[in-house]
Design a protein around this nucleic acid. Structure first.
Lengths: 196, 196
DNA sequence: CGGGGAACTGTACCGAAGTACATGTAGGCG
DNA sequence: CGCCTACATGTACTTCGGTACAGTTCCCCG
């Protein structure tokens, strides 16, 4: 286990090919580090242990497009560098648990090169969908979403065509109900980060 | 404006082809609803109004792969169903503002079909990482992380054992460098969501 | 009918956040 | 040695966010 993996996922369990199945939750992600062994073979071994439908993300020491292709051919949900930063790993986990695929920039380029222009950068993001909005009224939920998206009270007021004062009322009620201090923490809750 | 759009983006402004340019921020997203008109033509019209480099996401009433291809050929940043759920719209916005592309599941299949096998599951697919902290000094990065975690200036000051005034200086510099308005939007950038 | 919750609004206040204008120190570099 | 940058800090000011204390309308439900 690399230190950055532990940093990214303190609760992760190490697992070797040939080991017996640990009891893990339904939607766990298998992070599969591959080296020179064919990806398909490794993934097959992992699936024998953890079940055929476990979501696998392939970690490559020296990523290349061919191996990435092979990974997705073997139904991997993601492919990235073994030494990716913890934040990136977490983001990949987000995407994958949401049912998305994580494709490296390089492969993406390759896939699309023929048809479309791709900007030099790129990055995804995702949210966790635990019920953050229990107990909120419809309007409060609506306002909370806007706050979490970075809107100011004034902007929300304009878009909903009510006064800023009313927005404040909704925001205040929401902060109270969710037990957070200010709109930033509200956004963290709504966006599925930390606490509450 | 569909109710779900408003729910997803309360601060969004409606705009018709032929209208004059509203004053919008640099990194706004244009959500372009297309019907039977050719996509390229519509996008061109939008760009005439909002500027050539505005990020466009195409909303299709009846999505199909051909139209999706056409959209990306016309340099759209995303393509999805007009009636997508607010959460999905927000996720797309996240990805696009981060410089990513949003590709529908169907098109993704098609793109990969030639080369690799894709499992029957799969949601929209996405791309890889941009550093949020380019150009920040060590101290600024440190403060930005604390802000993004929901800390107040006073709390950060205490924990770093410097004055609140200095925290304000770092926060201010960071907002400037990342081109965002306030600490909430900063947190969205740091946490890998929309804005910027 | 009356009670109660939701949505909406008002005035007013306070503290947090953010900005403008300045100052000072320490370290790297031509 | 000056120059630049990061870091730290001060005063002062404006704006925004959040709260306290009201009050209204509408609608549902017992």
């Amino acid at each position: 286990m690399l230190p950055r993996w532990i940093e990214a996922f303190p609760a992760a369990l190490p697992l070797r090919i040939g080991a017996k199945a640990p009891n893990i939750s339904e939607q766990s992600i298998a992070w599969v580090r591959v080296t020179d062994e064919p990806v398909a073979k490794t993934l097959e071994a992992v699936r024998r242990i953890l079940g055929g439908d476990v979501a696998c993300v392939v970690l490559a020491d020296q990523p290349d497009d061919e191996q990435a292709m092979a990974s997705f051919a073997a139904a991997a949900k993601g492919y990235c560098n073994t030494h990716a930063a913890p934040e990136l790993l977490r983001r990949i986990a987000d995407v994958v648990t949401q049912g998305g695929l994580w494709i490296g920039e390089s492969l993406m380029h390759r896939l699309m090169r023929a048809t479309i222009h791709l900007p030099p950068s790129a990055a995804p993001a995702v949210v966790a969908a635990t019920a953050w909005d229990v107990g909120l009224t419809e309007r409060e939920r609506e306002v909370a979403l806007a706050v979490a998206a970075g809107a100011s009270n004034k902007e929300i007021a304009r878009s909903l065509d009510i006064t800023e004062r009313t927005i404040k009322a909704h925001v205040g009620a929401t902060l109270e109900k969710l037990g957070v201090r200010d709109r930033l923490q509200l956004s963290l809750v709504v966006n599925g980060h930390r606490s509450r």
